[in-house]
């Protein structure tokens, strides 16, 4: 349900990234979505398709969504497990002294930007004359 709000925020993040690098647009970006993040990857992809139609910087960008499974580390027995269901107990020793090492991600990772070649700009001169 909140995927669209997330994607609007993501679009802003990508627009600022373009600005920062003087890029024309984003050609590709990767997201990491943990199984505990409360985000449904399919809905996220749909929301990106809808929102990006209205955002020049990401309109035709390729999107890659990596789904990250929950991974529990137990601080008592040192075990690392990938439980099917969301339990914060160690399936090996039963201890509750565990932490989720993976599975809570909601991250923007690698981004590919298209940047106008500087030497080209110099050849053509600035498109807007200096004030």
């Amino acid at each position: 349900m909140h995927e669209v709000s997330l994607v609007i925020g993501l679009a802003h993040q990508l627009e600022s990234l373009c600005e920062e690098h003087g890029a024309k647009r984003v050609t590709r970006f990767e997201l990491e979505v943990g199984s505990m993040s409360n985000v449904v990857p399919g809905l996220l992809a749909e929301a990106i398709a809808v929102v990006s139609e209205d955002v020049d910087a990401i309109r035709d960008a390729e999107v890659v969504i990596h789904e990250i499974a929950l991974e529990i580390h137990c601080t008592s027995c040192g075990g690392v497990t990938q439980p099917e269901s969301f339990t914060f107990g160690c399936p090996l020793c039963g201890s509750t002294a565990v932490r989720a090492e993976k599975g809570e991600e909601l991250l923007l990772r690698n981004v590919e930007l298209e940047i106008d070649d500087v030497s080209d700009d110099m050849r053509d001169g600035p498109s807007v004359p200096p004030a």
């Binding site: 993501l10 993040q13 991250l107 923007l108 690698n110 590919e112 298209e114 940047i115 080209d120």
Partner: peptide
């Protein structure tokens, strides 16, 4: 001519909210 630049990030999508 334009070039492609790779940027490696690890940015939380909820960064602004947080």
């Amino acid at each position: 001519m334009s070039e492609l630049r790779q940027v490696h990030l690890k940015e939380n999508l909820l960064k602004a909210n947080d």
